[in-house]
C-alpha cells in the first residue's frame, strides 16, 4: 500500500465514524429538530471525508469531479430537506424539546 492508500483508508474510516455518530444521534436525540441537527451535520462531514478518500483513488480528474459533484448535490438536498421537515414541524405546532 502506498501513502495515498493509507490516507484514503484513514479518511474513509473517519467518514464512517461520522455516519455512525449521525445515526446514533437520530436514535438518541429527543425531538425532530435535534435529530435533524445530528443528520445534517454529521452526514455533511461524513460524506465529505468519504468523497475525499475516494477522490484520492480516482483514475481521472473527471471521476474526482463526479465525486465532488455528488457531495455538493447531497449537501444541497440535505440542507433543503432538513429545512422543509423543520418548517413543516413548526407549522404543525410540534413543540421543541427543552431541557
Amino acid at each position: 500500500m502506498t501513502l495515498g492508500d493509507y490516507l484514503s483508508l484513514l479518511l474513509l474510516i473517519a467518514g464512517a465514524i461520522f455516519f455512525l455518530a449521525g445515526t446514533l444521534g437520530l436514535l438518541r436525540f429527543p425531538d425532530v429538530y435535534t435529530r435533524l441537527h445530528a443528520l445534517t451535520k454529521a452526514d455533511n462531514v461524513g460524506l465529505g471525508l468519504m468523497v475525499a478518500g475516494l477522490a484520492l483513488q480516482a483514475e481521472s480528474w473527471a471521476v474526482a469531479g463526479k465525486l465532488l459533484l455528488i457531495w455538493l448535490l447531497v449537501l444541497l438536498a440535505g440542507a433543503s430537506v432538513a429545512h422543509l421537515v423543520a418548517a413543516t414541524a413548526r407549522q404543525r405546532g410540534i413543540k421543541l424539546w427543552r431541557r
Binding site: 461520522f18 446514533l24 451535520k41 462531514v45 427543552r98 431541557r99
Partner: peptide
C-alpha cells in the same frame, strides 16, 4: 465552510456519543 463543517460534525458527534447527551435546544 469546510472548516466550520468539520467543527460542526465533531461537535454533534461529541454530543451524541456523550452519555449525558449535553444539549440545550432553543429557538
Amino acid at each position: 465552510f469546510l472548516w466550520r463543517s468539520l467543527y460542526g460534525g465533531v461537535d454533534v458527534a461529541r454530543r451524541t456519543l456523550h452519555p449525558r447527551l449535553p444539549i440545550a435546544p432553543g429557538l
